[in-house]
């Protein structure tokens, strides 16, 4: 089975109103080339589920988002994502604001076919009050109440990985694969962009196979785009692009999202985008962040 496709094929399979999970974490290993392809499309009314960064900010700024399921939206070194912030402060989006761990539980519940997973996380806080859709349940085994974290069923998951083969074996060699395996498992369809498309034999050595975190049956499509996480990082290949994120954040203060999106995305191919940001060689030179 050959799952290699183009980003446009991925967008064509999505529909207005879908729930889309996005892998990565803040400014780290986000499938930004796939996000750019959505920005070029007519898709709208999406519900996003993400440990959010510029992926969420850009889609909000472009008016593609109905609702965001989030615990944070942040660029790390720029703590507050500028366009998510604008969307919230304009009251433009619905929200389900939950704890980071609750999101993990919601993805696991979806992956495992459970309607919910009980947790104490969120009890005693406004997470319950501002989200009437979250319920508490009594336990059959003790006298406590538990928050019933509902399954976060995803119509699609978008993930960026280091390497994949054409059958959908995906490898993440960076230090953390975040919750990407759970995004893949929680989704009906999982589209994965990769920095390198490799032969299946690449995964033969144990030290390579060990960094494959889900089975290929969880991967619907493989979209080879070297540098496809830019401006987010894809460790160990490249770090996130600090000057680019600064320019992006500055556009929120002056000029607005159109100045950014017209310069880099609208009417431009991914090749045009990469040329505008200095080319793939300079992307691969971006230093890894020091934490």
């Amino acid at each position: 089975m050959n799952k290699v496709m183009k980003a446009a094929d991925m967008v064509a399979s999505l529909r207005d109103g879908m729930t889309v999970g996005i892998g990565g974490w803040g400014p780290r290993r986000k499938p930004m080339a796939l996000i750019r392809e959505i920005l070029r499309s007519d898709l709208k009314d999406l519900t996003l589920v993400a440990y959010g960064g510029a992926d969420v900010g850009m889609l909000c700024a472009a008016g593609k988002v109905k609702k965001v399921v989030f615990a944070f939206v942040s660029l790390d070194f720029i703590p507050l994502e500028p366009y998510f912030r604008q969307a919230r402060q304009q009251g433009a989006i619905e929200t389900l604001e939950i704890d980071e761990g609750m999101m993990l539980l919601g993805l696991r519940a979806a992956a495992w076919g459970c309607p919910f997973i009980p947790t104490q996380v969120g009890l005693g806080t406004d997470v319950l009050n501002v989200n009437p859709e979250l319920k508490v349940v009594d336990s059959p085994y003790d006298d406590k109440e538990w928050l019933a974290m509902p399954a976060l069923q995803l119509d699609a998951a978008l993930i960026h990985v280091d390497r994949a083969d054409n059958r959908g074996v995906c490898q993440i060699k960076g230090a953390d694969h975040y919750m990407d395996d759970w995004f893949a498992r929680a989704a009906t369809k999982t589209y994965v962009s990769c920095d390198e498309l490799v032969d299946s034999d690449y995964f033969t050595p144990e030290q390579e196979a060990r960094f494959v975190f889900w089975e290929r049956s969880q991967t619907t499509g493989v979209i080879p785009i070297a540098g496809g996480a830019h401006p987010s990082s894809c460790s160990p290949f490249y770090g996130f692009d600090v000057p680019h994120f600064k320019e992006y954040a500055a556009s929120a203060k002056e000029g607005g999202f159109n100045t950014y999106v017209d310069k880099y995305i609208n009417g431009k191919s991914e090749a045009d985008y990469q040329a505008l940001v200095g080319g793939i060689d300079s992307i691969k030179q971006l230093p890894l962040a020091v934490y």
């Binding site: 989030f70 615990a71 944070f72 939206v73 942040s74 703590p79 507050l80 998510f84 912030r85 919230r88 402060q89 604001e97 939950i98 704890d99 980071e100 761990g101 609750m102 996380v121 969120g122 806080t125 997470v127």
Partner: peptide, 11 residues
Amino acid sequence: VQMLGARGFPG
């Protein structure tokens, strides 16, 4: 003012 979000604080 939108800030970070609840992050891991509830848990």
